[in-house]
Amino acid sequence: MTFSYTNSAYPIREDITQAYQAFWHKLARPGAWWSGAQRIAIAAEVRNAVECQYCQVRKSALSPYTTPGKHKKGNLLSDTAVDAAHMIITDQGRITQAFIDKAALQGLSNEHYVELTGIVVAVFSIDEFNRALGIPVEPLPQPVAGAPSHYRPANLSTDTGFVPMVSVDGAVGNERGLWPTGRSANVVRALTLVPDALRDWFNLASAQYLSLEGMSNLVRDDNRSINRMQMELIAGRVSAINECFY
């Protein structure tokens, strides 16, 4: 059983455990553009990135794009994919359109990049939850064989951000219900080139923070021990340290 938290000094809410177990189950299986083994290799790069000496040197350099060096990494993914995963963890504020365009020329398509991003940020947030509580990270799952679906949404636009996204009025057909409130902020659309990446972050956010519907409650969710102001103080401080303008 994954995420049993039996050795935790603190009781972990059941919905958190279930959300993490559900993501681990999906992580091991083929996605839209990566195999199960590749998805787990991407997850492993999250853990390599936080210990990567080259990333630390690059983070302090005037430009991240002119600093020579080699990442701490596994051997299943291309150097371009490894670099993207590490950059998202350690220096995300300096990712540019040019970085993503160059990655695409080197074989990391926008579709591969978006699915990779979804995996990286999901695994990182789960690992960070454990680290926050002093709990060792969960061992990565064993891969399940199979081929990626190569699913690409029909209604994409390129007018926002670095990668194609489902258009504001494009949540129809297979994408129906992607924004259940009927309103879509840019951050909701960000990963929709791979719709399951958005579904994954909704599922994790509903347990770690609030559901999309729950975000309209500005006072307090009955199932949380902290009120909305306390949540937003934490959110704001984490975002400020990460220098996140959004």
């Binding site: 991003t117 939850f129 951050v187």
Partner: peptide, 29 residues
Amino acid sequence: PGVLVDAAGVAANFQRMVRIADSTGIPVD
């Protein structure tokens, strides 16, 4: 412990969200 665990969840959530925003280059709405 209830506050600690819920605070850990929110902090972990925003470690994810800032990276989604910045790695996809989305502008503020």
